[in-house]
Simulated scan of single mutants.
Amino acid sequence: MTGESLPAERRQGISRVYNASTSDVKLWLAEPNVLVVLNFHSSTCPASKALSPKLDAMAIKYAEHSAIMKVNVGRPGEAATMAMNEYQIDETPVLKFFLNGKEVDELRSVQNDEKLERAFKKHTEKIKGEFTMKEGELPGSQNQRSVEDMMVRGKRGDLPAGITRVRVPEGAKDVTEGLAKSILSNSPVAEELVEDAKE
């Protein structure tokens, strides 16, 4: 890359692995100074499933400098067509690493933690230094919680992460006011809601 000057700006990476569309992939690959990792996988492939938690850990560890995207090639569609035509993917899982629009590494099949760590460290080291951070959001950059995360309560009184209990102002009406007694008495969930409302 001698003689080429790279942009002195970059975008924050992503702290989670997310399912990307073909347009998401193109947007991220056009970004300078961020390590983009494409995980070509299939939801029915045991090796893809085994690799998944390892990539989740890498996404958290290298969130500042990398964006890891899952591209599901296990079913017919736009993603599978892109994988075969543009990236010659003929097996899963395959990890392709891109930096400044160029492919810099490829790993096939399940990788041990050390090999994954070496690849991420090697390529993110090239991004260290003084950069102007770009504004605006790209797909996947919002760390959204899943519906399951928001709905699951471990035990009574527990609230999902990111939700806090608020004090009900004096004079506020009971949330169960006006509901038929038969509805309230036949549902254990409704009974719990009534109890919570009284606290």
Rank of each mutant, 00 (worst) to 15 (best):
E4H: 13
S5I: 07
E9V: 12
E9I: 07
E9A: 13
Q12H: 15
Q12E: 09
I14M: 01
I14Q: 06
R16I: 01
V17A: 02
N19G: 03
S21A: 09
D24K: 10
V25P: 05
L29P: 04
L29V: 03
E31G: 03
P32Y: 12
N33K: 15
V34P: 02
V37I: 15
N39Y: 09
S42E: 06
T44G: 01
T44A: 12
T44N: 08
L51I: 06
L51H: 00
A57L: 10
M58K: 12
A59Y: 05
I60P: 00
E64G: 01
A67K: 12
A67T: 07
A67P: 07
I68T: 08
M69C: 04
K70A: 06
K70F: 00
K70S: 03
V73I: 13
V73L: 03
P76W: 03
P76T: 12
A79D: 08
A80N: 05
M82Q: 06
A83T: 13
M84F: 04
N85I: 05
I89W: 01
E91V: 14
T92A: 02
T92V: 07
L95Y: 00
K96L: 09
L99I: 09
G101N: 04
G101S: 03
E103A: 09
E106R: 15
E106Q: 15
L107P: 02
V110R: 04
Q111G: 05
Q111V: 14
Q111S: 12
N112S: 09
N112W: 05
E114K: 15
L116D: 05
R118A: 13
R118T: 15
A119N: 07
A119M: 07
A119L: 08
F120R: 08
K121M: 03
K121I: 05
K122R: 14
H123R: 06
T124H: 04
K126Y: 01
K126S: 11
I127K: 03
I127C: 00
G129P: 08
T132I: 09
T132S: 14
E135H: 09
G136H: 02
E137N: 14
L138I: 00
L138H: 07
S146D: 10
V147R: 11
E148P: 00
D149E: 14
M150K: 13
D158T: 10
P160R: 11
P160Q: 08
A161W: 00
I163S: 03
R165G: 02
V166Y: 04
G171H: 07
S182N: 13
L184R: 15
L184H: 10
A190L: 10
D196C: 01
